[in-house]
Write a protein that binds this DNA or RNA. Structure first.
Lengths: 345, 345
DNA sequence: GCGATTAGGACAAACGATTGTTCCAGGGTA
DNA sequence: TACCCTGGAACAATCGTTTGTCCTAATCGC
């Protein structure tokens, strides 16, 4: 019932008390004593403000202070659990600090990403957490040169002076690949994501490093796919299954790709891991309950969101750009990788 | 390189041209002809604006127009795929109309939800899409009486004059229950969500209706749990398995609850569906690939997000409050429900 | 040649909050 | 009495846009 038809303004409160907005603002801003507003007046102001359920218009406040207490968040696809988890922790950490989140979903499209950046900047956000789509980086170079506070999450651009927090993708992929190699796999297919992205390059690099290190030749025909989406994993796996190239294992570079692979494997009535082994990037709450519980490379995406916001504040408080924070991954061992006899490979 | 250190303002553009902000504003606002600004001037303005990469300060604009082109979105948990999907479609539909999203995650806590509503309102959003936690509704009554445009998603409050879009939960639950009954199940456990919520009441009601309609007595001991979270499903299932009450099937009222049930069943080394059958609300991309592909009640949550935004605009354009839009659910039949002999029940 | 249009923009207020400065009255001091 | 100080609060500018109104030439009609 206290919800007013038209929002209470500072002026309205002041008029009802026979004061000016100045005085009311100072009292509510906690500067009453500093400006020698009498205790009696302060009490009256606070009481009426509470009664009218007054809360200052953040738009006007933002204009005056050029500070909006808002953080922009751009993700390629908020319905992807991976990004949703990051978003969850970004919002939580932001709220803890009294900040709100302006969310944009770039729909995995760089054009929308550029649009979103402009949109968000024209709203004068105090900081920006960006999970780039990862195809092009010209717009990011512009961003780096601007005065906008930015932290990149999930994908990093070594050439740009932008703070970032990502998984140690090279190592994650290498460990997963080595795990398979130790179990006797030599023909390991790599279902990669967007080829242009640094994220993908790192994971593929880790994969290749592991192979090379164990004296296994890299077969380009086993490196397939070109998107982090389910569709890509599906198509790549089906093509692979019908191609000459034989393989005993799959390393899927994202949860969605893994889902696509699962779909293809299931349609071909193959069995995991007896027919084909698999490890996927990104853990999922469903992973333990799959037909074959899936071994995964778990990223610390909860922390990523949180850390991203922390970096934003670290940067804005002291001018200490903190570059490329790398988070370790963890291999969660389940049952989707078979041990095979060396001669099988 | 056009990214300015300090944002270009309307005044700056005007000064460089020897004009006033008025003129520049009118030209860029498309009202040049209407106010008889010469074509030459209009061209000059547009050229410089483009060159300086000018875009109006949305904060100032919002203040002047008392319209922020922003929609508030409050969800209980953005990392839950169900809400993440809704959010995805809300943002997409909003973007299509030139609106941005201010996101809040209430963390399934009514206190945070109330905070979020205040926060969002103090930012003068033009509309609010709210997925309520569902415990209390006093704050929603206040909201209903205010001039704030609101659409409720996922949970509805029949007593309140607020537009909403939800699944036909009664029918969804009834159909799922009937499906099990047709397969010979009579002792069906109901893993409910938050008891206080209308959402849960509806689903439980549908469950009970189906039983009653088929002459099966309702056993209160089979209706367990009190949260939509995984933990609740887990605990409820374990307790149920160790209790006297025998049952052959489970109806889980959310994806998270189902996950908890899966966990419990797995820990008890039981088999789905031979030991226990299960149907879960909310479909998941993983559902087909589970140890036993799971039969689910699929909600049209993609459309929910989209429709929510559409309702918001329908309401704000013509004063036609559209009440309680109900979306049908669909039973996706997989393998998690066994047909049992009547005497087993 | 004189008033009336018209073209082309400028002026100034307003949105709501914040803040550096100023104003006023009363009390104490010299 | 003249002066200063201090408590208490008001004044007014400002953030960047938008918009109703007003101003000033030049042009037109007759």
């Amino acid at each position: 019932m206290n919800a007013p038809k038209s929002k209470t303004t500072l002026k309205a409160v002041a008029e009802q008390l026979g004061l000016t907005p100045t005085t009311v603002s100072r009292v509510l801003g906690g500067k009453g004593d500093q400006y020698r507003i009498s205790q009696k007046t302060q009490r009256r102001v606070r009481e009426l403000a509470a009664k009218l359920n007054f809360s200052p218009n953040q738009i006007a406040r933002g204009l005056r202070l050029s500070k909006t207490s808002t953080i922009g968040l751009i993700v390629p696809d908020i319905s992807n659990p991976y990004f949703a988890t990051i978003a969850h922790h970004v919002t939580a950490e932001a709220r803890r600090r009294g900040y709100s989140i302006l969310l944009c979903d770039s729909q995995e499209d760089t054009r929308y990403e550029i649009e979103a950046i402009q949109l968000i900047r024209s709203r004068n956000v105090d900081g920006l957490v960006l999970c780039p789509v990862g195809v092009s980086d010209e717009h990011l170079a512009e961003l780096a040169e601007s005065d906008q506070q930015v932290v990149l999450v999930d994908r990093t651009y070594p050439d740009l002076a932008i703070a970032s927090v990502t998984s140690d993708n090279v190592r994650g992929a290498r460990e997963a690949t080595e795990y398979m190699i130790r179990r006797g796999h030599k023909r390991i297919a790599c279902l990669q994501g967007l080829q242009a992205s640094a994220l993908n390059r790192d994971r593929v690099l880790g994969y290749q490093e592991a192979l090379t290190q164990h004296g296994i030749p890299i077969d380009e025909e086993l490196i397939v796919g070109d998107s982090f989406a389910q569709q890509s994993g599906y198509v790549a796996t089906r093509l692979l299954l019908h191609a000459q190239a034989k393989f005993t294992a799959i390393l899927a570079m994202s949860n969605q790709i893994a889902l696509g692979a699962l779909q293809a494997v299931s349609e071909e009535s193959l069995n995991i891991p007896s027919d084909v082994s698999i490890i996927a990037f990104d853990d999922s709450p469903y992973a333990p309950y799959l037909a074959t519980p899936m071994t995964t490379v778990k990223q610390r995406n909860e922390e990523m969101g949180q850390i991203a916001v922390q970096l934003l504040f670290a940067r804005s408080e002291s001018q200490r750009p903190f570059h490329g924070l790398l988070l370790p991954t963890r291999l969660i061992e389940r049952d989707s990788v078979a041990s095979i006899r060396p001669e099988d490979s």
